[in-house]
């Protein structure tokens, strides 16, 4: 068996993820990173509550969910337990104030593996009203991923 497979099996964590709205789910968490797809942007949109209304093909492929599973789901479906909740508190505070948010995010795939992104979230403003949010992710540099990993460990 190749070494990384052994590692996967050893590092399986059955984890309960608690969301801010009081719900929780049991998820498999693997120590296996899926590389960011070259040249692509991972795009999704949500309503004002963070419920997914649109996901592009790259989003579907990287998340491991089908489009049907994603549309109508809360965006926290991708939340990785290694992500500190203050990071998302900052995100919501920024976008609800009508501003653009940038950050490095570790996302949890349906299969338990993870992928790092550099995310930008902006409010969708139509006739002066915020009707939802758009998030676009790009490939992060490894140095930013390491910095974020170190930082998030101190925050969670």
């Amino acid at each position: 068996m190749p070494e990384h497979d052994v590692k996967d099996v050893r590092d399986v964590r059955d984890t309960v993820i608690n969301y801010h709205d009081g719900t929780s789910r049991k998820a498999i968490v693997l120590d296996r990173e899926v590389p960011y797809p070259e040249g692509k942007l991972i795009v999704s949109r949500t309503d004002t509550q963070g419920v997914i209304t649109h996901a592009n093909q790259a989003f579907v492929e990287m998340s491991g969910y089908t489009e049907d599973e994603l549309i109508g789901a809360n965006h926290y479906i991708l939340r990785h337990p290694d992500m500190p909740s203050v990071a998302f508190a900052g995100l919501w505070e920024t976008i609800e104030a009508g501003n653009k948010w940038h950050g490095y995010v570790k996302n949890l795939r349906k299969d338990g593996a993870y992928y790092w992104v550099k995310a930008t979230v902006i409010p969708n403003i139509r006739n002066g009203v915020v009707v939802g949010y758009t998030s676009v992710r790009r490939k992060p540099s490894r140095s930013k991923v390491s910095e974020s990993e170190a930082l998030y460990k101190t925050l969670s």
Partner: peptide, 13 residues
């Protein structure tokens, strides 16, 4: 509007 929002996310400021 969707395209313009997307482009907006690509402009860092």
């Amino acid at each position: 509007e969707f395209m313009i929002d997307l482009i907006d996310t690509l402009i860092d400021e």
